[in-house]
Amino acid sequence: MPRAAATPEDLAHWLARSALGDRAAFERLYEATCGRLFAVVLRIQRDRGLAEELLQEVYVTVWHSAGGFDAARSQPLTWLSAIARNRAIDSLRRAAARPAAPTEALDTDTLEDERPGPAELLQRALDRQLLGRCLEELAPPQRQSIALAFYDGLSHAEIALHLREPLGTVKAWLRRSLQALRGCLDRSH
């Protein structure tokens, strides 16, 4: 049965209650956000077992640092997603070696795996008003670099490998795309 989507105000309220030790509020928060955060973790850490473990760590951290959430500075979902992403990216560092070649996994953009690839996800994000408009302004390879880094947690070297471009070029693309995005987003606000 689909639940009504929680509003940012709901999430902020449950976070505040969690900071006070309210377990029921924490459970509501989990129910409303676990699907999203699991998806974020799973994009980056593709080992499901590890991803489940990471998701537990994410919510344990959320419970303990809920008091640090400041509604004036962050959107609740942004704050939660940042914790999930950081934990997932750290897990890539911890793993002795990344499972298989990421380039191989990325070719599933179109087949096997029904999950949308980074390019398709970015396309969906493009449909979203402001950020989308700003992403549209980037040259395609630069856009792709951002998608590979953001959605799949690829490092500079892995992006270079995937796009078959020199490492220096990829670093410069990424740096410039982020600057351009910032310029566009800040201008429009």
């Binding site: 999203r36 998806a39 959107q75 997603s81 992403r85 996800l121 994000a125 950020l131 953001f150 987003l185």
Partner: peptide, 11 residues
């Protein structure tokens, strides 16, 4: 984070 994390909503 405010600029980039909305990208995650597409997942």
């Amino acid at each position: 984070e405010q600029r980039l994390l909305p990208l995650a909503e597409a997942v």
